[in-house]
Nucleic acid binder design. Structure first.
Lengths: 212, 212
DNA sequence: TTTTACAAACCAACCGGTCGGTTTTATAAG
DNA sequence: CTTATAAAACCGACCGGTTGGTTTGTAAAA
């Protein structure tokens, strides 16, 4: 087998084993020996691919970030034409994806934070840019930020195993978060720029539509 | 010195040392030896007060929960007369308190989760009751839950060191979360079927709002 | 041949927890 | 108020096992 692909295979096996361990036994049980055992590699093999445990965590983190970055980019391209606030919509959808992901993905975050809190600067910096984009496009930046925060609250709660919500409730809340019509900005700025009228526009709530 | 108070003192010293360690070095660095070193006690002394490390985490967890429970009760008593949704208001205020606490309190959660994820059932169960109370009193339960989720998102993000928000922004967002006037309930969401194309809903402004 | 990928034995430091012993407090008889 | 005794708080050396990481060896790829 080709050398490069062999390495690639081993790295992938190790990282996936790591995720499995974290999800099954908790971040505290993630050790190099456990990774070796779970991946089928020897410890030496693992150490050949990652010089240190921190390197494993870093790779794990980057892998996950890349994965969701990709999801984000694709989603953004899809909705940027139809949504008034595509960046917010994208982040909400991405967080939902992370929360419902079959593999318990974002646990890499917790594991990294346990081992070395400084590692969190990577995802934090990346998140900062996204938050900027969300604020920039929003008619009501605070409201947008709060929707973003709510999504993160749902994700992190269930990630830490402390969400008191049922799975169905979880889903419904995400759906509502994503529904722009439910989040009309308050008339705080005197001059509210009408939301970019796209194909989505539809009926403005409250005034145009009265419910029964 | 009295025996009981001596024990009390030692337990307190150990637990506070533990919190200091977690906040400074991360949850992964919390060891029994470290607690002994940081608290000034000997390892034997620590082990005399807590038979196992898990007992330390449990005590830490219960201590923090009790502290915020107390804050909650006091706050609830204060606002239950004037607020339309005192339970939600109380939870929001409590979470804000936890987020701005000088000691990085709620880190006990992360530490417990690392050592033994099962420990999370304690705070989860308690949270479940609170969520029930919030839903019961709310005109729009989903909206209330989302405000609650947003608060938790802000708290957990900064707790894990991955909040991209400035401290002032943080405060402003909490203030807005707490301001009932900014969150007008929708009426019974009889037929809400919203995904991405804005086809939905009826936003109705406060007919039934009771405000002071 | 040289380099790369991996295996397996190995190591020092550290981990949670035990144990025998010392000091401090509590109880109570004289 | 002593004094004897037991009980609780505390110390620190120690133990088996684990941890992150190294070293040595080997077989395949380059």
């Amino acid at each position: 087998m080709d050398n490069a692909t062999r390495s690639e295979r081993s790295r992938k096996a190790a990282l996936e084993a790591a995720i499995r361990i974290i999800a099954r036994d908790g971040p505290g049980r993630l050790t190099l020996d456990a990774i070796a055992r779970e991946s089928g590699l020897s410890k030496g093999g693992v150490m050949h691919q990652f010089r240190t445990k921190e390197a494993v965590l870093k790779a794990l983190l980057e892998r996950q970030m890349e994965h969701f970055e990709e999801f984000s980019t694709r989603y953004l391209a899809k909705v940027s034409a139809t949504s008034a606030n595509p960046n917010l919509a994208t982040q909400l959808a991405t967080v939902r994806e992370a929360a419902t992901s079959p593999n318990s993905a974002a646990l890499a975050l917790v594991a990294a934070m346990v081992e070395n809190p400084d590692l969190m600067s990577l995802p934090r910096d990346r998140e900062m840019k996204r938050v900027e984009a969300i604020k920039a496009e929003a008619a009501d930046p605070e409201l947008a930020l709060l929707r973003w925060a709510a999504a993160r609250g749902l994700l992190l709660s269930s990630l830490l195993g402390m969400s008191p919500l049922g799975k169905d409730e979880h889903q419904r809340l995400f759906a509502r978060l994503l529904d722009d019509d439910q989040w009309r900005p308050l008339e705080k700025p005197a001059k509210v720029r009408a939301v970019k009228a796209g194909t989505t526009s539809a009926a403005k709530a409250g005034t145009a539509r009265k419910r029964a």
